[in-house]
């Protein structure tokens, strides 16, 4: 990940509603996210980072609980910058 250019914005563009996650049985986001941003907590919630996000959208697509993951684009000019895409 150190090789990727991330311009970290002040606003988190991912939010996770851990209340919803507690009833989730699959936690698909934890393994599917290619940036490994999601980590389960002992109380059944999900801890997340937004700083090193590839902005692919995998997390909200694989999420099976309505409204657990809210994902928007980061503010203009922020976020990942691919130089060799």
């Amino acid at each position: 990940m150190a090789t990727v250019d991330f311009r970290v914005g002040a606003r988190a563009h991912i939010t996770v509603d851990s209340e919803v996650c507690r009833s989730c049985t699959t936690s698909a986001c934890v393994t599917a996210c290619p940036a490994n941003l999601f980590a389960p907590t002992s109380d059944g919630g999900i801890l997340f980072n937004y700083e090193e996000c590839f902005e692919c959208g995998t997390c909200y697509m694989v999420c099976n609980s309505e409204g657990a993951i809210t994902w928007t684009y980061p503010d203009g000019g922020q976020g990942v910058v691919f130089h060799h895409g």
Binding site: M1, V4, G57, T58, M61, H83, H84, G85
Partner: peptide, 9 residues
């Protein structure tokens, strides 16, 4: 050696 890692849908 790794230059960049990327992901996209």
């Amino acid at each position: 050696s790794l230059r960049e890692y990327a992901a996209h849908l």
